[in-house]
Simulated scan of single mutants.
Amino acid sequence: MDVLKTHVVHGGTLRYLSHDSAATGTAMKLSVFVPPGEAPFPVVIWLSGLTCTEDNFTTKAGAYEAAARLGLIVVAPDTSPRGEGVADDEAYDLGQGAGFYVDATEAPWAPHFCMETYVTRDLVELIDAEFPTNGRRAILGHSMGGHGALTLALNHPHLFASVSAFAPIASPTRCPWGEKALTAYLGPDRERWAQHDTALLIEAGVANGQFDDILIDQGDADGFLVEQLKPDLLTAAAEAAGQRLTLRMQPGYDHSYFFMASFIADHLAFHAKRLKA
Rank of each mutant, 00 (worst) to 15 (best):
V86P: 00
L159I: 12
A27D: 11
A91Y: 02
V86G: 02
R137Q: 11
Y185W: 02
T24G: 13
D122R: 06
G148A: 06
G62Q: 05
H112R: 01
Q218D: 05
E65S: 11
Q228W: 13
I139L: 07
A87V: 08
F258V: 12
V32T: 11
H158D: 13
T246I: 05
P111R: 06
A61E: 03
G62M: 06
T58Q: 01
L30C: 04
L268Q: 02
Q243G: 06
Y257R: 01
M28T: 14
A61M: 08
P42Q: 09
M115S: 05
T6Q: 12
R136L: 11
A23L: 05
A277W: 03
E179Q: 14
D122V: 11
H142W: 08
A104K: 02
K273E: 15
P40K: 07
V75W: 00
Y253A: 08
A240W: 06
P176N: 12
R244A: 13
F113G: 02
A76Y: 03
D78T: 15
A161Y: 07
L126K: 00
D254C: 09
R69Q: 13
L200D: 03
L215I: 05
C175I: 09
K29C: 11
F41H: 04
L50W: 00
T6G: 06
M28S: 03
D89E: 13
L150R: 01
K60E: 14
A129W: 02
I73S: 03
A241M: 09
A61S: 14
I139V: 15
F57K: 00
K29A: 13
G146F: 05
V75K: 01
A236K: 14
M144Q: 12
D78S: 15
R121D: 05
G11Q: 06
P188H: 10
I139D: 00
D217A: 10
T246K: 03
K273Q: 14
K230D: 07
T59H: 07
V124C: 13
L234S: 08
L14M: 08
L233D: 10
D189K: 03
G99Q: 03
A63K: 02
V124Y: 04
S262K: 03
I73V: 14
H271L: 05
F259K: 00
S262A: 15
S164K: 04
N208Y: 06
